[in-house]
Amino acid sequence: MSSDTDAKLVRMANQIAGFFDTQPGKDAVDATARHLVEFWDPRMRAQLATLVEQGGGGLSETAHRAAERLARMQDA
């Protein structure tokens, strides 16, 4: 995986989390995770999970926690 596409994934995840962070009365982490499951192909989600394992540099808090939740869902 190139660091270029890694950086892009991080930016995309942050953008999604950024939107859901602004939604009142909603669990932003859950909404972000669901958006990722709905729109990202499995390989992209796995790549994001790997990034989180490696420390998740650059991910916003919501994006980070959503990615962790995804990783757990993937393991399950």
């Binding site: 709905e38 729109f39 990202w40 192909d41 499995p42 390989r43 992209m44």
Partner: peptide, 9 residues
């Protein structure tokens, strides 16, 4: 049952 890749992806 999994979503696929979009053009940029």
């Amino acid at each position: 049952s999994e979503p696929g890749l979009r053009i940029p992806n």
